[in-house]
Computed example of a mutant assay.
Amino acid sequence: MTQHPTSDARRPANRGPKAAAGNRAALVAAAREIYAVDGLDAPLSRIARRAGVGQGVLYRHFPDRDSIASAVLEENVRQVEEAAAGEGASFAGVLGVVTWHLVQSAAFIGLLHADGANGRSHAHALAPDLSERFARALRGCLPDGHRLAAPDAPDDLMLAVAMVSGAVIGPTPEERERRALAAWRLLGITVGPVAPFQQ
């Protein structure tokens, strides 16, 4: 019987050293897709196949499992920071980007809940810094007088995000998004369109 390759089994020809930046971006995008479905323990060979590169290319960019997981988490946080710093950024709009990442990345949810104290991996070691950058970006776009900006309750904003992330469960992205939006609504918080940040 002939086996037909799955979409992540097809691999184009090697694009050579000039394609390094594109290869790295493809690997991070592939890792995000694979981790969304299979978690951080997914085989690295699947990530390489999905990105359309060989495993040698993967290891040139990311010498171990932790380094690629860290790159995915770093990209999540960077997108939130860019959304918050963009011209005309609104809190609701940034929350739409945050919600998209919560729906798409179990690893991102793990980052928000990581205390960094007992983690052994590089990704866990980066968690406190990434979490602080994430919180700083959100706080920076909170409107004056917003109830999550109360000076006597400085942790309320991150507590709200953690509560919503706990509601992001379900078998499909659509169900996870529906539950996330319901959780924000129950907290009385308006969220903009759920989408990745686009420059």
Rank of each mutant, 00 (worst) to 15 (best):
Q3W: 11
Q3D: 14
P5R: 12
P5W: 14
R10T: 14
P12A: 13
R15A: 15
A21L: 13
N23E: 15
A26C: 12
L27A: 03
A29V: 04
A29C: 08
A30C: 09
R32G: 03
I34F: 01
Y35V: 03
V37P: 06
D41C: 06
D41Q: 11
A42S: 14
A42Y: 07
P43Q: 13
P43L: 11
L44N: 03
L44H: 02
R46E: 09
R46I: 04
R46V: 08
I47V: 15
R50D: 07
R50F: 06
G52K: 04
G52R: 05
V53W: 03
V53L: 10
Q55G: 12
Q55K: 13
V57E: 04
L58D: 00
F62K: 00
P63V: 10
D64K: 10
S67T: 10
I68L: 11
A69C: 05
A69Q: 04
A71I: 03
A71G: 07
V72P: 00
E75T: 08
N76W: 03
R78F: 13
Q79C: 06
E81G: 05
E82L: 14
A83D: 03
G86E: 08
G86K: 08
E87H: 15
G88F: 14
F91N: 00
G96F: 02
V98I: 09
W100Y: 15
L102W: 02
L102P: 00
V103L: 05
Q104R: 11
Q104I: 04
S105I: 02
S105Y: 04
A106R: 11
A107T: 01
A107I: 02
I109L: 08
L112E: 01
A114E: 05
G116C: 10
G116H: 05
A117D: 13
N118W: 11
N118T: 12
R120A: 06
S121E: 05
S121M: 05
H122Y: 12
H122V: 06
A123F: 00
A125P: 01
L126T: 00
D129K: 11
S131F: 13
A135Y: 10
A135V: 11
A137D: 04
R139A: 15
C141I: 12
L142R: 06
L142M: 14
P143N: 11
R147H: 15
A149F: 07
P151W: 05
D152Y: 13
D152E: 15
A153Y: 10
A153I: 06
P154A: 13
P154D: 12
D155P: 07
D156C: 07
L157D: 01
L159F: 15
A160N: 07
V161Y: 05
V164S: 03
V164R: 00
S165P: 12
G166A: 12
V168L: 04
V168T: 03
G170L: 06
G170T: 06
P171A: 15
P171C: 10
P171D: 15
T172P: 09
P173C: 13
E174Q: 15
E175L: 13
R178F: 08
R179A: 04
A183L: 07
A183N: 02
A183C: 10
W184G: 00
R185P: 00
R185C: 04
G188S: 13
I189R: 06
I189A: 09
V191W: 01
G192V: 03
P193R: 07
V194E: 00
A195I: 02
P196C: 02
P196M: 01
P196T: 02
